[in-house]
């Protein structure tokens, strides 16, 4: 008996130890990836800094990384940075939500009802072939250069990828799984909530992520055409004042915030799609 107990506890211990080494292994792997991924950018920045200091790049065209970084820190200390970041993020967020909501409503409608597909889809497909930026002048004409036109534009950009992915997600739900639901006599509402929605979730999330990416693209366009604040405004401002460091600072901030927001969606995706059987890259 005692022997058994001993074996049991020691077994547990080794189990725990194994879990621990597993975890450190995983962390090591992550660290390795980060290190590998940073090699090129670090080299690039160092070379750039050196060449700038040596005067190879004229500073009025390509300032050194340290200068750009200084510009960002300076704006942060003066406090203007937060206003720019805040308003841009707000615009993207508002446009993203608006575009997504419309896409969900229209997309589910078109996905579920064949009639709706026949009515709406050809038109939406036709609109899709218009480059969304072409709407800009019209929106300004209609809604002025205020927030409304900017957010509408971003929403238009977000709408298409989300809509297309929702529709293809719903239409792509495996008929075989729907039959399982029917065998258990689910009604239409239960079929939708218990089978169609979860089955089309992966596609929906893909749509959300590419929609968000487009949202960031469109906020630049929206702010370029007229804004008094925002990261896009900084681009114009830097150009007008011939301050390339402001432009580059703005670009870098766009990259960081865009990446952060995508990262949030990616976490949501991983949380809600952990059941998926996906290829794991080694």
């Amino acid at each position: 008996m005692a022997k058994n107990l001993e074996a049991l506890t020691s077994g547990q211990l080794t189990g725990k130890a194994a879990a621990k080494t597993n975890k450190t292994k995983r962390n090591n792997g992550k660290l390795k990836r980060v290190v590998l991924g940073s090699i090129l950018p670090v080299i690039l920045i160092v070379v750039w800094e050196l060449l700038s200091r040596m005067g190879v790049f004229p500073s009025y065209q390509l300032p050194a990384p340290s200068v750009i970084f200084g510009t960002i820190v300076d704006m942060a200390q003066k406090g203007t940075l937060w206003g720019h970041i805040g308003i841009t993020t707000y615009r993207v967020f508002a446009g993203f939500v608006l575009g997504t909501v419309v896409a969900i409503v229209l997309g589910s409608f078109v996905g579920f009802y064949r009639k709706a597909e026949q009515i709406f889809d050809p038109m939406i497909q036709a609109f899709r072939s218009i480059p969304s930026l072409a709407w800009v002048p019209l929106f300004i004409l209609w809604m002025g250069i205020g927030e409304t036109s900017k957010i509408t534009m971003i929403a238009v950009g977000v709408f298409f990828p989300v809509y297309l992915n929702i529709v293809s997600g719903i239409l792509g739900v495996d008929r075989k799984l729907i039959e399982v639901g029917r065998m258990y006599r689910l009604n239409t509402f239960q079929l939708v909530s218990r089978i169609i929605l979860p089955a089309s979730l992966p596609s929906f999330l893909v749509g959300l992520r590419s929609g968000l990416g487009l949202g960031w693209m469109f906020v630049v366009a929206a702010e370029l055409m007229g804004a008094s604040q925002g990261l896009g405004f900084l681009l114009v401002f830097g150009q007008n004042m011939t301050q390339p460091e402001v432009i580059l600072a703005s670009i870098i901030l766009f990259a960081i915030i865009g990446k952060l927001s995508d990262w949030v969606l990616k976490i949501i995706e991983e949380r809600s799609l952990h059941w998926q059987d996906r290829m794991v890259k080694s």
Binding site: L177, E179, P198, A199, W275
Partner: peptide, 16 residues
Amino acid sequence: DTTGFIFQEPRLLPWL
């Protein structure tokens, strides 16, 4: 209600 069907494939719902 009283009929059960075992399909040729498992047809499990992958999210459950």
